[in-house]
Computed example of a mutant assay.
Amino acid sequence: MSRPYEPWASSADVRVRMQGNRSRDTRPELALRRAVHARGLRYRVGVRPLPSLRRTADLVFTRCKIAVFLDGCFWHGCPEHHSLAATNSSFWAEKVRKNRDRDADTNRRLADAGWLVIRIWEHEDPVIAAERVSALVMERRKKQRTSRR
């Protein structure tokens, strides 16, 4: 016999707020994508850089092997803006710790496979972040062209 679904959220209000959190196409992500696109760069959205690894990057430049992750300040423990949860604090502290551990593991695995990982915090100016992404993409493309000769 199946049990009725019991949400783990601390209250109905928290549950509604949590359901409103998007995993992609967030405002910061759309702003970054617009800024990168405006610089003339084309990319893939929401792709696994390594198909065998269950990790999805926000922007992926497949030919030059660059994966861009836009990390939320709360979810990934931003040193500048992360705030401790008032309710269920031990659960959230552990959740953020696991997210950070997974981020480090992702960075390592992608680097081992020849990928460059760029991590951007959601609070960063999207135009400045796009300039950083653009510079690294152009640098990587230039290196690829010179190594083929």
Rank of each mutant, 00 (worst) to 15 (best):
S2V: 13
P4T: 01
E6A: 02
P7H: 10
P7L: 03
P7A: 04
W8H: 14
A9W: 06
S11I: 09
A12W: 00
A12T: 08
A12G: 03
D13S: 12
R15M: 02
R15V: 04
V16S: 12
R17D: 03
R17P: 09
R17Y: 00
Q19W: 05
R22E: 08
R22P: 00
R24N: 07
R24T: 11
D25W: 01
T26Y: 10
T26D: 05
R27L: 01
P28R: 07
P28W: 04
L30M: 08
A31L: 00
L32I: 06
L32Y: 03
R34N: 05
A35E: 05
V36G: 04
H37A: 04
A38Q: 07
R39N: 09
R42Y: 02
Y43R: 09
Y43W: 10
R44Q: 02
R44K: 12
G46F: 07
P49Y: 00
P51N: 11
P51S: 03
S52D: 14
L53M: 07
T56R: 05
A57Y: 01
A57T: 11
A57P: 05
V60P: 01
V60S: 09
F61Q: 10
C64G: 09
K65A: 03
I66N: 02
A67S: 09
A67N: 05
F69C: 06
L70V: 01
D71N: 10
D71K: 10
G72P: 05
G72C: 02
W75P: 02
H76E: 04
G77V: 07
C78K: 01
P79Y: 05
E80V: 15
H81Y: 12
A86Q: 15
S90Q: 15
S90H: 14
S90Y: 13
S90A: 15
W92N: 03
A93N: 15
A93V: 13
V96I: 14
V96A: 11
R97Y: 12
R97S: 14
R97D: 15
N99G: 11
R100F: 14
D101P: 13
D105E: 15
N107R: 15
R108K: 15
R108I: 12
R108G: 12
R109D: 14
R109P: 11
R109I: 12
D112N: 15
D112V: 13
A113I: 12
G114M: 08
G114K: 00
G114Y: 06
W115C: 06
L116I: 14
L116H: 13
V117C: 14
V117T: 12
V117D: 03
I118C: 10
W121I: 06
E122L: 04
E124T: 00
P126T: 01
P126F: 00
V127I: 12
I128Y: 11
A129S: 07
A130I: 08
E131N: 08
V133N: 05
V133E: 01
S134H: 07
A135H: 05
A135S: 09
R140W: 02
R140D: 04
R141C: 10
R141H: 02
K142G: 11
K143I: 03
K143W: 08
K143G: 12
K143E: 13
Q144I: 10
S147G: 00
S147Q: 14
R148M: 09
R148W: 08
